[in-house]
Write a protein that binds this DNA or RNA. Structure first.
Lengths: 337, 337
DNA sequence: AGTTTCTTCGAGAACGTTTTCGCTTTTTTT
DNA sequence: AAAAAAAGCGAAAACGTTCTCGAAGAAACT
């Protein structure tokens, strides 16, 4: 059976009480410097490790935060986690990771089975087709703070951090227009997600500003995968009225569309312009290279975590919305020469 | 202050003792079916959530496992985590994530500050230049099981799961030879890592089998990034005695090398053959597409976690080494036509 | 010298469970 | 019908901390 050195062992060793040891290990006041030094010395000699279950019980707070998101196997999310992890590490928090596989059922199941009593807060990016938010409300009611990032919801009064989807999309589409494309399609994400709605709005606004017509059949909602991109492009380029440009909701779909076009002999850039969203490293590797809107994924992770920690540490802290601007990165896929 | 429903609330409600409630919530024996049903009903009505700090304290086991690895922002590691997470989810374990940024100091710091008393086990892939294993030994001495994956060490008597680096490399290089390349360079990873050693051995064995000369200057050890690949290639192709093929320790370096060759007008495949390792999705996106050895990353994650859980649950379980075979995937970068 | 204030510490309860032991009551065996 | 075994439950200790209270002594005032 495992057996670790406890505060009691230290107390016995020095013939003092556990309360004193406890104080010595944390505070500096209310304990004599000498005894404190002795405690610290013994503690490190015996290689004492605090029992987090016990401290968690006694203080009603562990130093754990849950991160719940759809996937981790893509550039965006893995980079966000890296950012989160960076500030968690600095501040001595542990990250408990849950991945929903973008399934609402699994998300629900995870939330319901969360070790909520040993979690100080939650960082979440919701699944595509979540339609109910009760499970989150319940957690909020229990005074466990939540910060949403990227995939947020307006149904809940919490802090959130996102990129500027509307303006990013607007800029992307305007860039296509300025480069002489006029028949611009949008291959979008699942309609339920706030950020696909915002990117769609940005797309529409840019068309409107430049007096270009909006065609229903040029707006396709589907999933986020490369395969979805292939299918959407195949749909767009088999009928009549083919577009001459595509704005994709993310780089993976853009890349899917590119592979479709390439294998059908359509010249990217020259004949059909393409712009993605994210700045996935693949967008630089593919040829022609992909124009895209870069998202500050790492910073979004950092900021989300900082915000959550503020909520955890200060008691009443007004929910905030933080919006990061995107940045247009022009490459080969959106220019005609 | 947060306040959750406890076992005591249920006991009070039903006028029975907490011990009975505790039993009812877990076992089926030693408690009448009727009272058990009543307890379960009240528990779900009050929305009772067990306090994991308390159970952890009382049972000396949380249901947490730590995952410690260098990065998560690449295909291989993020897929491994997804596999780990899959079985952890099935079995009701939580994953506590730590990323070392491939820094030995940070790794050490993380290990030393681990909430070890509330961790049932560890899954780790070590940092590149870790030279000391004492911190791991200490954990093992405390009877907390560790399973290493991918980046393992021979200094410790623990279970480990890896891919067959030797044979994968052998196959990759033999494939190049069979396709008519004779001057094959190897851009390798940091020399300290077991798996780069094994891939190097596989490379050497293939050369030897086919009586090709080994040239020291064609073997370069550096980091794992795309940038390292660029630099290694630039080194290989600026001097005299240029190779006509490259076997890269991973796909990112292979891709780096490809970008260098492409921008220098060297025809990949025709003039210089390239094979990578991993089967990163980028290897299919880049053109020409990259021949590679596919690693079963997801399965490695699953298996590592299963093994760890076995160690946690059975007491004395002989350390095992599990080796997954790789699979050669032939694409355009390694054929001369 | 007497009073007040600080400083340092210990006793013991509390956090929410599990677990051991033993006591009733019921059921089974003879 | 008596004896033995089993079933169901409660009291209380334990897990390793933190925290509140108060006591003892030292230091600082009058």
């Amino acid at each position: 059976m495992k057996r670790f050195i406890t505060i009691k062992d230290i107390a016995k060793e020095l013939n003092i009480s556990v309360s004193t040891v406890s104080r010595a290990l944390r505070d500096t006041y209310d304990v004599n410097k000498e005894t404190r030094d002795k405690v610290l010395e013994i503690a490190s000699r015996l290689n004492y490790k605090p029992n987090f279950n016990a401290t968690g019980l006694a203080k009603r707070s562990s130093h754990n935060i849950a991160v719940i998101l759809p996937f981790i196997t893509n550039y965006y999310f893995s980079t966000v986690i890296t950012g989160i992890q960076e500030v968690a590490y600095e501040k001595g928090y542990n990250i408990v990771l849950y991945v929903t596989n973008d399934s609402p059922e699994r998300e629900l199941n995870i939330i319901n089975n969360l070790p909520i009593t040993s979690l100080d807060g939650l960082l979440v990016s919701i699944a595509s087709n979540s339609d109910s938010y009760e499970h989150f409300e319940e957690i909020i009611a229990n005074e466990t703070p939540i910060v949403f990032f990227d995939r947020v919801t307006n149904h809940l009064e919490t802090s959130r951090v996102i990129q500027d989807d509307y303006n990013g999309a607007f800029e992307a589409v305007e860039h296509l227009i300025e480069n002489g494309y006029t028949k611009i399609a949008h291959i979008a994400g699942p309609a339920s997600l706030t950020f696909t709605q915002n990117r769609l709005k940005g797309y529409l606004a840019a068309l409107e500003k430049h007096h270009l017509e909006v065609r229903e059949e040029w707006i396709i909602h589907s999933g986020f995968s490369q395969k979805d991109g292939v299918e959407d492009a195949s749909f767009l380029f088999t009928g009549e009225n083919r577009p001459d440009a595509i704005f994709a909701v993310n780089d993976r779909k853009a890349i899917g569309a590119m592979t479709y076009l390439k294998s059908n002999g359509i010249k990217i850039g020259q004949e059909v312009g393409i712009v993605g969203f994210t700045n996935d490293p693949s967008s630089e590797i593919i040829s022609p290279s992909l124009t895209t809107i870069a998202e500050p994924a790492f910073e979004i992770g950092r900021k989300s975590c900082e915000l959550l920690l503020r909520h955890i540490e200060k008691k009443y802290f007004q929910p905030q919305e933080i919006v990061f601007p995107g940045k247009l990165i022009v490459r080969e896929s959106s220019v005609k020469v």
